[in-house]
């Protein structure tokens, strides 16, 4: 009984069905343990690793410079910016928008630097549903290759104050 005291030497390795299940469960855990590193080398979708330390004000400066040099238009007063394929792009999370709007080309790879000007934010690309966490002081570099064209929304999915549910942005992906 689970409420009574086992007496004597009660050590006994599992036998029968119990041993079978422990073995099966362990095998399944090993399968899962191997799948993750395997995908790390073989898969195309992995959590970005590259991070630089950055002061929020320095990051804002880089964003502004990036917007000035690569600006191609405007939507609702938010600049649309087209980075060079293969080049660096900047995306700033701030209370309460993602800035600027990025215009990318399908099947081209970009290094998108993401950071926050103020609080923690969650970058969520919709409707494809890709999400990363954004911290102030951390320049997080996503090496990203859009494989589908169209207009994609950015929203924030980490609570960042009372305007959190109005924090949006946009990525436009053009066919090449």
């Amino acid at each position: 009984m689970s409420i009574f005291h086992p007496k004597g030497n009660w050590y006994r390795p599992p036998t029968g069905a119990e041993r079978l299940w422990v073995g099966l469960a362990l095998a399944w855990c090993l399968v899962m343990s191997i799948t993750m590193p395997w995908w790390h080398f073989q898969g195309k979708q992995n959590a970005p690793q590259t991070t630089y330390e950055v002061d929020p004000s320095a990051f804002i400066q880089r964003v502004n410079q990036f917007v000035e040099t690569n600006r191609v238009g405007e939507i609702n007063n938010v600049p649309i910016v087209e980075p060079e394929p293969g080049g660096d792009a900047y995306l700033l999370g701030q209370m309460w928008q993602w800035y600027p709007v990025l215009k990318l080309k399908k099947n081209q790879t970009y290094r998108i630097h993401v950071s926050s000007a103020d609080l923690q934010h969650g970058l969520s690309i919709l409707p494809i549903n890709m999400n990363i966490h954004v911290l102030p002081g951390y320049d997080y570099v996503m090496e990203i290759t859009p494989t589908t064209a169209g207009e994609f929304s950015l929203i924030c999915n980490e609570f960042c104050g009372i305007g959190h549910h109005r924090m949006t942005g946009k990525i436009i992906v053009e066919e090449t």
Partner: peptide
Amino acid sequence: GTYGVPRRTYDSDFGGAILETGFD
């Protein structure tokens, strides 16, 4: 959540955002 609807977010329609968005 599989549609990307965020947790801890008041308005799933993002009413009043500068750039409009919403869900299926």
